[in-house]
Design a protein around this nucleic acid. Structure first.
Lengths: 245, 245
DNA sequence: TATAGTTGTCTACATTAATAGACATTTCGG
DNA sequence: CCGAAATGTCTATTAATGTAGACAACTATA
């Protein structure tokens, strides 16, 4: 494990970014838990086979994320190491699942719209293309750090007050309940991982080049009628998805 | 949709790589299905706000992956666009799930070892750290393209012939059966997405900077006793994980 | 068979990333 | 209080990435 670690040149990904990713991974794996500090720059430079300045760029990026803090004369100490474990099950609800992992969770409404359902949305909700839907855009945070952003669609005919109820109650589950839907389950989830686009970088406050996991999910009422089509993008370096079967 | 698309500078990720990722995404989204071709280089350059040469670097990377092929005078045609949908459920088996999506699936044994269980492996298998385990390293391919590589651990005391049986039968499920375990289920799956390291780049034949989804799973016999601890890394741009609850 | 539209190749130059070395500054322990 | 060990800062140089423009080569079509 202490052999030279893997960074590649001429890949279109700068060495400092590759190294930042690897150090972040080591931190979340607990590789440095004994000392609570990142190894000295000169040691890391040796491990990765690069110049000390390149390592410094990587550490600067991690410091920018608030993950580490360098102190002259002492070393670079680890500030945070958690990766939130996010449950995915038939009964997935955002704040509930995080439970004791975060002191405070928040879902912020970024935008709302009423618009005709496009192809994949209509297909997911099993409605005719063009049927009106309510779209809600949210960013969800835990302890002040954004962990996901989502776009959801609800059939307008059945939940005409979705946006207002959500703004009042700050919860999809409660907004459903206020409109007569006491329970719902997830009937489908598809996952894809890719690089974050510019809007996701901004919303999730990610360092550019970061990865998002996109979960496309459909929730349905107890009779199996789809009530919500959502596309949630998680900041991949902050979460771990736990599948509950 | 035709507005300027999002690429960012000074991110540690070269523009050509960001653009290659975006074009790959557009291809798999079916954005270019009408023509079966990527838009002309000069058009893409305009959309992304970069020089034509930068787009050419991106297209060269995609051509290298075999995703597109440029033909002088005509344009750049799309060769492949599929993303394999990979089911994750209590009864996840590799070849079975892919079913009709690929004509031919293959699991290749890269290495085997007998070694004492380390921390997370022991914890997952619920055995004492240091207990002997059999480790199998596999690469799984569909239609000749690698889609995942995995490292699995099995308790040596219960499945002493795991490696031999797998080599003979080319299937984990069959190797279990040959050793008296007729059925097993997945009891835990955790997902994380990150950049591929050098060995994964080589095994999965990825272009550098690519993303992998790492699934850490535990399979257990019908009594709930863990029989397999595995870490599978999927090539993120080739698969979509479908959660079945 | 022109011609418009496309990819291929070349040169030149600017900007960013990475290397190299020197030395300052801070912390901590003997 | 000195010295080892760590981070901070500076200069200089090389390599990789991105821009710019010109023109060649090829394809399809009017």
């Amino acid at each position: 494990m202490n052999a030279k670690k893997a960074v590649e040149r001429q890949t279109g990904v700068a060495l400092w970014r590759q190294i930042a990713d690897l150090i972040r991974l080591s931190i979340s794996n607990g590789d440095y838990d004994q000392t609570g500090m990142v190894p000295p720059e000169i040691v890391l430079a040796g491990q990765f086979g690069v110049n000390r300045h390149t390592v410094r760029s990587a550490l600067a990026a991690l410091a920018d994320e608030g993950l580490v803090q360098a102190i002259q004369g002492r070393g670079t100490i680890i500030q945070r190491k958690e990766r939130l474990s996010f449950p995915i099950s038939r009964r997935t609800r955002f704040s509930q699942g995080l439970g004791d992992q975060a002191r405070e969770t928040e879902a912020k409404l970024l935008g709302k719209a009423i618009l005709p359902a496009a192809g994949d949305v209509a297909k997911g909700l099993k409605i005719d293309p063009g049927t009106l839907c309510i779209q809600l855009d949210l960013v969800s945070s835990a302890d002040g750090r954004p962990v996901s952003c989502s776009t959801s669609f609800f059939p307008e005919s059945r939940f005409p007050a979705m946006a207002e109820q959500f703004e009042r109650l700050r919860s999809i589950t409660k907004a459903f309940a206020a409109q007569g839907l006491a329970d719902y389950v997830r009937i489908s989830t598809e996952l894809v991982a890719r690089h974050a686009d510019a809007s996701e970088l901004a919303l999730l406050r990610l360092s550019p080049g970061a990865i998002v996991i996109e979960a496309t999910a459909i929730n349905a009422d107890p009779d199996g009628v789809p009530v919500q089509f959502s596309r949630t993008r998680f900041a991949a370096d902050r979460v771990k998805l736990k599948i509950e079967t």
